[in-house]
Design a protein around this nucleic acid. Structure first.
Lengths: 243, 243
DNA sequence: ACCTGAACACCGTTCAAGT
DNA sequence: ACCTGAACACCGTTCAAGT
């Protein structure tokens, strides 16, 4: 699991080492178990030593986000806006999927760190380079929202995730009872959940093809953006129509 | 600010009273300051007394979400799916806006409480009643994601929000320097930010019409859903095409 | 310049006891 | 049946001191 020990001459701490240690500690033990004290221990150092390199825990989290954002590929060159945007979002998605805690941290934070701003700036650049008006680009960015990072709120999240080991298996008869309960109380949820499972396999469990769902919504939006772009959509006109 | 005092015969605690006290405490002091101890104090009771009515803090948060979800209007009757969905989402949005902490709590949680399931079930029902296939409804729900709750990740969030009082005002010359810095490092962000401010007023500050942005993206999606629905879209066919 | 020790003001939660 | 007191094992962070 977590590497530690670290004998020999104590390596000098620096912000980068702190940040990367924090990232891999969060990868290993989960974000909820990441504390300044625990991180210090991992680095073989007293808690207060960290405060020379990050001002506080908030800044630590911002720095960790920065590390992950740094793993996202820059926009591909010489491609249309649509494929450039699509590829970059899917690259972001891959980076975020490597660090399951990152989604939550990204969302919980009002990020205006240089790394995040840099990402957004080049992101916006893809639309502008594709001939989008500044106006449309602005609204398009809002429409994407967190999808820009390659994720959306999952509808039917697995409970907690993390340690699947500790939890006792649900015995089949209890599972059947839960199923019964669901089908009478929430029949429609069950219906669409069953539809997803149909061609996959297990009736209960995470049978959704998340990647398909993500691309479904993404392409729907991209299609819409494209249409508006070709129509020379402006927000002023839209507001007029809306009244 | 926070009402407390509460003299006279101590009212008996119950889960409902605990939950509602927690909601209004979070409204008042912010979710990050909501602790079991603080809540107990607010109710004029020792911390441990709460544990007779909620199993732990997680369950408290789930219960608080339940209270907010209960404030969302049920689907309107005798309307087309599109207007029913639209109205309900905007009603959810109003409820969530009344409790600024709710968005974050909703997102941080793997909610499968009865209140949330009930909301989703009736939500799904609107599409099915509109003649959507179970298949399309499933994907459409994923595409909506957290937009179902009436919010999306805000692009340019105000830092932290909450106590605007304590923070010292940024002096104009510093503001100008920040502006300068932004325009050279993140020129495109500035461009689209300026576009938003154009007809509003202050150059810096929250000049975005959040409601417009929200409806812009929502209508783009609804439009897309409608098109797929009329084309008798199926995921099987879509996967075939995609390869 | 960087790290340490001890302390402060908090957390959520358990356990055994009170009425 | 409900509430209390005292305690446990944690937090993030400050301050003054060490090398």
């Amino acid at each position: 699991m977590v590497q530690q020990i670290e004998v020999g001459p104590r390596v000098r701490l620096n912000t980068d080492r702190v940040l990367h240690a924090a990232v891999s500690l969060a990868d290993d033990v989960g974000i909820e178990s990441l504390s300044m004290r625990r991180l210090a221990q991992e680095l073989g150092v007293v808690p207060m030593a960290l405060y020379k390199h990050v001002a506080n825990k908030e800044e630590l989290l911002d720095g960790m986000v920065g590390v992950i954002v740094g793993e996202i590929d820059p926009p591909v060159r010489d491609a249309g806006w649509r494929s450039a945007v699509r590829q970059r979002i899917l690259s972001a998605r891959e980076a975020l999927l490597r660090h399951p805690w990152a989604r939550q941290v990204l969302e919980s934070r009002t990020n205006r760190t240089p790394a995040v701003l840099e990402y957004m700036d080049t992101f916006i650049g893809m639309f502008l380079a594709g001939g989008f008006s500044v106006d449309l680009t602005h609204h398009v960015m809002h429409a994407l929202g967190s999808r820009m990072w390659g994720f959306t709120q999952e509808l039917f999240q697995d409970p907690a995730g993390a340690d699947t080991e500790g939890k006792a298996e649900v015995p089949p008869e209890v599972q059947a009872a839960m199923f019964q309960e669901m089908s009478t109380r929430y029949p429609k949820i069950l219906q669409i959940a069953m539809a997803a499972k149909h061609d996959d396999g297990p009736v209960v469990g995470p049978g959704c093809d998340d990647q398909f769902e993500f691309e479904f919504a993404l392409d729907l939006l991209l299609e819409g953006f494209d249409r508006l772009h070709r129509q020379d959509w402006t927000s002023a006109r839209a507001k007029l129509v809306r009244g």
